[in-house]
Design a protein around this nucleic acid. Structure first.
Ligand SMILES: [Mn+2]
Ligand SMILES: [Mn+2]
Ligand SMILES: [Zn+2]
Ligand SMILES: [Zn+2]
Lengths: 145, 145
DNA sequence: ACCTTAATTGAGAATAATTTTCAATTTCAA
DNA sequence: TTGAAATTGAAAATTATTCTCAATTAAGGT
């Protein structure tokens, strides 16, 4: 089964256990297309009579994050949003300040220039995040009226 | 005096008052070279027998932010960090994940490409933030040993 | 200088997100 | 099947920020 694979591939720390809460959370994370936060997991599981304590959700998110199962999308609004990593390569986000819509994109020229500018400063680039905030097509049209 | 100028230039809302707390905070913000958060202001003023309530600091930061006196540097780590705007045009940040050092930089090619990619998505870009995380020169050297 | 009053402040309570504590439960290797 | 080590849930604790409200203060008119 694939869930077990993920545990073996990403969480191969000698003492880690494959527990029910971890499996449930991983399943949720794996099948959601959207970005999610701790409450999203909590509420979804609760709705499906699979309730898990928030504490365990936060603990599991930290574990998954450390092991590269998920990554942080944004921390703005002082609430952390995550996304699943597998089959979802790095990209950046445009965020509509009116409706909250998120557009995912990737621009290789920008990625390349980021590396270049880091070289110039003798900075070893490990990761980055870039958020472009503004108005999506729809909201811009509405606002013009 | 220059403090009053800033109030007149940035905070010219009919009913706003130039109060002692606001002046103290503005002075701190103006003379600090570093990025700062609410606690930095609180602690610095307290050390100088100029104590102001945290509530007022948060209120003033919100006011300054809305009026373009300061801007948000990052919200990561769930604590908002700001910087003074005047004589400090837009730039982005490299952040050392080892020692926390922050390198400020600006790359016009990247800025240009950001606009371009937004056009492609019919997205009206208002602002952005970009954080490059990795190892600064010093920390990289140390780590190699 | 003195009034008036709307704006602002400080203290502390309230909220939101996340983390910690700890006794009870579960996993898994032997 | 057993038992130690890891993990969990519930509740308390922490952190960052916002709100409430009575007391104070800035600033325009007199
Ligand atoms: Mn995404
Ligand atoms: Mn800066
Ligand atoms: Zn929108
Ligand atoms: Zn460093």
């Amino acid at each position: 089964m694939e869930i077990k694979e993920i545990f073996n591939n990403y969480l191969k720390n000698g003492t880690l256990k494959i527990t029910t809460p971890r499996v449930k959370i991983l399943k949720f994370i794996k099948f959601t297309k959207e970005h999610f936060d701790a409450d999203d997991i909590y509420n979804n599981l609760k709705e499906n009579q699979q309730k898990i304590s928030l504490a365990s959700i936060y603990r599991t998110l930290a574990l998954f994050l450390k092991n590269g199962v998920i990554r942080i999308v944004t921390h703005a609004g002082r609430k952390a949003k995550y996304e699943f990593v597998k089959d979802n390569p790095h990209h950046d986000h445009m965020i509509c300040i009116k409706c909250g819509k998120i557009i995912e994109f990737k621009n290789d020229d920008i990625e390349y220039m980021q590396k270049k500018v880091c070289e110039k400063y003798n900075f070893i680039l490990k990761e980055h995040n870039m958020e472009l905030r503004g108005l999506c097509k729809n909201c811009y049209k509405k606002r013009k009226k």
